[in-house]
Design a protein around this nucleic acid. Structure first.
Lengths: 119, 119
DNA sequence: CTCATATATCGATGTCCATCGATATATGAG
DNA sequence: CTCATATATCGATGGACATCGATATATGAG
């Protein structure tokens, strides 16, 4: 059977295994773009540092030094990209990391073989 | 001695170990931005797929479907970010990956401990 | 219900950047 | 030297996006 260049998962086909198709490059770039912002990186970092592994949006505004609207915007971007997950608790929104997704992005950047490839 | 939040290397302080400082976030974001573009990802992928591990700029224009000026611009961005290295051979410019740098960016995204930290 | 609070969305604005044609620079051939 | 080719830089342009104040929506308290 032919080698399938399009992954069954939305993210992410490895860079080093073979030349990336344009759609695959677009997908990986979108995932990386969601991380390629200092405010979003600090949000991810703050969530990771939370005791329970999840953080309330109300606790993420002050440490970033940004407006509530801006923080909400960035959190939405991260959720949309699958980097973090949102959970409603009463009137508070809690966010936690999707570690697998982050690792999958890194794997695409470093691994020399396609997912599921022997050797 | 105190834990140093500023790495001795320009890149990259791990996200998950502790809340990222703004300068550290900025640095990591810059590294990620250099990768967060579909054309640049395809360039990296094409270089990785080259037989000798390095590719001539002249061979990278056609497969990306971009103008010579655009490709040159993207290659410069990647060199500036330390993702690839440039080498002049006669009138041709050859580019090769800095694998360590790419892995260092990924390590910053996934590792739960600072570089050199015990356990 | 009303009110307060938490979060999301809207609209505007300024900035960054990908892109390209044109041009400059560099390198070697003859 | 001149010429051809490879690559880099310049300047302009269009689009994407980070940011914020204002406002809308959601959720619970009383």
């Amino acid at each position: 059977m032919f080698f399938m260049s399009v992954s069954t998962q939305p993210c992410c086909v490895p860079l080093m295994a073979a030349p990336l198709s344009e759609p695959d490059a677009e997908r990986l770039a979108d995932a990386l773009k969601s991380l390629a912002d200092p405010v979003r990186l600090r949000l991810v970092s703050l969530i990771a540092a939370s005791d329970s592994g999840s953080a309330c949006a109300c606790d993420l505004t002050t440490p970033t030094g940004k407006s509530q609207a801006t923080v909400s915007h960035h959190l939405s971007q991260l959720v949309k990209a699958g980097i973090i997950k949102r959970e409603q608790r009463g009137k508070w929104a809690f966010f936690s990391l999707d570690t697998e997704r982050i690792e999958s992005v890194c794997a695409a950047l470093t691994s020399r073989t396609a997912v599921g490839d022997p050797a």
